[in-house]
Structure formats: structure tokens, C-alpha cells
């Protein structure tokens, strides 16, 4: 039953879409409120990485892949997050 399977995948994607929109608003609000500090910075970075992970897992469909390709986006996010996080941490 292709139909139900596709829909079973579509429904969480719609949910993910909602979450992505919500998290974006949070990030924006943090910016507008001029919240400061390392904690805030890491929160914003963490949200961005989480959003990226959702895109990779659901929109790109990597959830249903195994092996190397399952993890490429996660790996990329960790790399970018690690480097950027380190730079911001070191600059306070």
C-alpha cells in the first residue's frame, strides 16, 4: 500500500514543517530582543543545528537510509556547529 506509506511519511513532515517555522520565530525573537550572552548564543546555534537535522532526516529522507549517507548531514552539522561554537566560545 504505497498510499498509506507515503502519507505516513507526509504527516510527520507536516509536523516538522510546523516545528521549523516555530523555531525560526524563536531565533528571530531572540535577535529582536537583543538577548546577550554565551548561553543565548549556544541556544540559537543549537536550534539551528536541530533544524538542520530535521531537514536532513525528514525532508531529505535520510531517516530511511543506513550507513554513511544516514549520517552525512548530522556529521556536517556537528562539524559546522563544533567550529562555529568553538569560535564563539573562545571569543568571550
Amino acid at each position: 500500500m504505497t498510499d498509506s506509506l507515503t502519507q505516513r511519511w507526509m504527516r510527520p513532515c507536516t509536523l516538522v514543517y510546523g516545528v521549523l517555522m516555530g523555531l525560526t520565530l524563536i531565533t528571530w525573537a531572540v535577535g529582536m530582543l537583543e538577548l546577550q550572552g554565551l548561553g543565548v548564543t549556544f541556544l540559537v546555534l543549537g536550534l539551528a543545528l536541530l533544524k538542520g537535522h530535521l531537514i536532513g532526516d525528514w525532508f531529505m529522507g535520510l531517516r530511511s537510509v543506513r550507513g554513511f549517507w544516514r549520517w552525512v548531514i548530522v556529521f556536517w552539522l556537528l562539524l559546522v556547529g563544533g567550529l562555529v561554537g568553538a569560535a564563539f566560545w573562545l571569543s568571550v
Partner: peptide, 15 residues
């Protein structure tokens, strides 16, 4: 899209 999701906080928000 993914790249922008990092770019947006990095360049516009994080300080």
C-alpha cells in the same frame, strides 16, 4: 534551505 538555516542565525543573530 539547510545552508540558510545555519546562515541566518550565524550572520543575523549570533553575537
Amino acid at each position: 534551505d539547510l545552508v540558510w538555516l545555519i546562515l541566518f542565525p550565524l550572520v543575523y543573530v549570533m553575537h
